[in-house]
Simulated scan of single mutants.
Amino acid sequence: MKNTVTLVGYVGNAPQVRETQAGATTTRLSLATSRSFRDSEGNRQTETEWHRITCFNGTGKSVAEHVAKGAMIMVTGRIRYTRWTDQSGTERFGCEIIASQLDFLSRAKEAVAQAPGKRRAG
C-alpha cells in the first residue's frame, strides 16, 4: 500500500515556522489547486481546493527561506487525517499533506503575474 500525493498550485499565505520543544522545525502553509470544467449549460467554471501543507526540518527551513505568498510550487508527500475534540466538546476532523519534497516552479512575483485573471496587459 502507498500513501502518496503530488499537488501543484499557488501558495496562499506566508509560511508559518515553529520550533518544537525537541528542536525540530515545523513549517506550515496553504496551497490552492484549481480545476476548470464546463457545467451542464456550457459555462466555464473553476473549482479551487485549499490544502494544508506541513514541512519538517530541512524541507521546512528551505520553504521558510524561499517561498512567499503567490509562488507556484509542487509538493509531494503523504496525506494525514487527524481527529480531535475542541474545547466545547465538538469532535473535529482535519486533513493535511506532510511534505517530503517541494519543488519551486516560480517566484511569488512571477506567479501572481501569471495567475488566471491577474495577467499583465500587453
Rank of each mutant, 00 (worst) to 15 (best):
G122T: 12
G117F: 14
T25H: 09
C95T: 14
A115T: 08
K69W: 00
G9M: 04
M72R: 14
R28H: 02
P15V: 13
L31P: 05
N43L: 07
T48V: 15
G9E: 01
G122K: 11
Y10I: 03
H51F: 06
L105Y: 10
S106C: 11
P15A: 12
F56C: 04
N3P: 03
Q45M: 13
G12N: 08
V5I: 14
S100A: 07
Q45G: 06
V11I: 12
I53G: 04
E65I: 05
G42Y: 12
T90L: 06
V63M: 09
A68H: 04
H51S: 11
L102C: 10
A71F: 04
K109W: 08
R92Y: 07
K2Q: 03
E19W: 13
I97E: 00
A32R: 03
L105F: 11
R52V: 11
K69Y: 02
D39E: 12
R52E: 11
A14E: 14
E47S: 10
A99P: 00
L105M: 13
R83L: 06
F56A: 01
T54L: 10
T4K: 07
H66R: 12
A64F: 10
R78T: 06
L7H: 06
F56P: 02
F104R: 13
T33D: 06
I73K: 03
E110F: 04
E96R: 07
R38V: 08
I73D: 00
R28F: 03
Q101H: 09
K61V: 08
P116E: 04
G94M: 05
E47H: 10
A68R: 07
A113Y: 02
T54W: 00
Y10M: 12
E49M: 12
I97T: 01
